[in-house]
Every structure is written in structure tokens, then in C-alpha cells.
Amino acid sequence: MYEFLTGPMVWISFGIFFIGLIVRGVRYIRGLDWKLDRVTYGENISYGVRGAVRSILFWLFPYGTRSWRKNPWFTLWVFLMHFGILITPIFLLGHNILLKEKLGISLWTLPEAVADTMTVVVIVSVVFLILRRIALPEVRIITNWYDYVLLLIAVSPFLTGFLAYHRVADYYFWLMAHIISGHVLLIAVPLTKLSHFLLFFMTRAQLGMDYGIKRGGMKSKGMAW
């Protein structure tokens, strides 16, 4: 089981992850329609590129936009969570040892204490987001079970990894739980709302082009995100 999950299954999960995202991206772009969306994607390209880049960059940095600044705590935890989720698994020592064993390559790695802290930060961020969903009426009304499932899918590899690493109770159980939840996360990215891993950039670019080309981009310094 362990051999399968750390061997062929890794190829399967990453295969679904990458191919799924490519399909998502291609379908998104192919589904854009200049006339229905009312944005000349293929014309006025310099304005479109400028609009898209601005729209992505301002939002990619914490407190880069008015919306981020207006919601300082949400912004803080959301960015910490995303940073932790994206960076920790790639530069984790344990993962890279595995990588070295299997493929003979490895990346630079995070000091273990740092990775451990980042893991805790991810868990705390998710707890914050769950509490926020429950506490704020304007968020509660739009929250459904699917939102909680996604948070669970995202946090599970971190929670289980943390427990396994610290040898809490049954190491093998938590290790297996960690590996399985990691696969679930990878597979879920292209198949669920977690596809915003890629689609964030797509939708941001699209609205950026809309503003850059049509909604004032040619008559101003660009949208003040």
C-alpha cells in the first residue's frame, strides 16, 4: 500500500493535477467570446496585456488592493494560508528526501522548524476561515457544506503531516492519512473550486483586460484596484 501510494499513485495524482489544470485553462480561454464578453481580446493587445498584468499583480500582493486593505485580518490569514500551502510541501525536507530516493533529485529545503511553523500557520488560518464563516452573517449566508469540505481537503495534509511528524500516537496511521489526503488535495485542485489555483489568474486577467481595453483603460492610467 505504502509503496503504491508513494510510487505509481504519485504519478496518477500529479497527472490528474497537471492535465486537469491544462484542460481547465484551455477550456477557459476557448470559451472566451469577444462579442458576448464585450472585450476585444485579440485587438488593442497592449492595453489588454497591461490591464491583465495590473489586475493580477495588485491582487497577488497582500494589501495591494483596496479590498485587501479594507479587510486586514482576512487578508493576513488568507495570504499566510496560501503561502503555507504552496511553499511548505515543495520545500519540505521529508518530501525532498523521498524525491531523492525515487528520482534522484531534490530541491533546496526549509529548516524543519520553519516548515513546522508554516504548517501550524496553515492550520490556524483554516481555523480562522472556518470561524469567520460561522461568525459573520454576510459570509454565513453564502457558505454551504462544500466550502467546509474544501477547507478540510486543503488542511488535511497539513494536519496529518503535523501529527505524523511529531509522532503523535500511531505514526503509520497518520503517515498513511497524510499521504492519502495529499493525493486527495492534488486531485481536488482541478476538479473543484480549488481550480482557482489556475483560474484566479485567468479571471483576474479577463477582468483586467476588460478594464484595460474597454472600461477606461485607454483613457486613464489604469484601473485603481
Partner: peptide, 23 residues
Amino acid sequence: KSLKSRTKTWLEICSHCGLCAES
């Protein structure tokens, strides 16, 4: 015929964060 990827994706990926409320 008219619901294309832009609107479809908007409806699909909304993560229900509620930042739009105060806007």
C-alpha cells in the same frame, strides 16, 4: 448559447468569502 466560460467560471469558483458584501 450565451453562457460562456467567463460567466460560468465566475459562478463556479466564487469561494463565498463575502468581500463583496461591503462593496
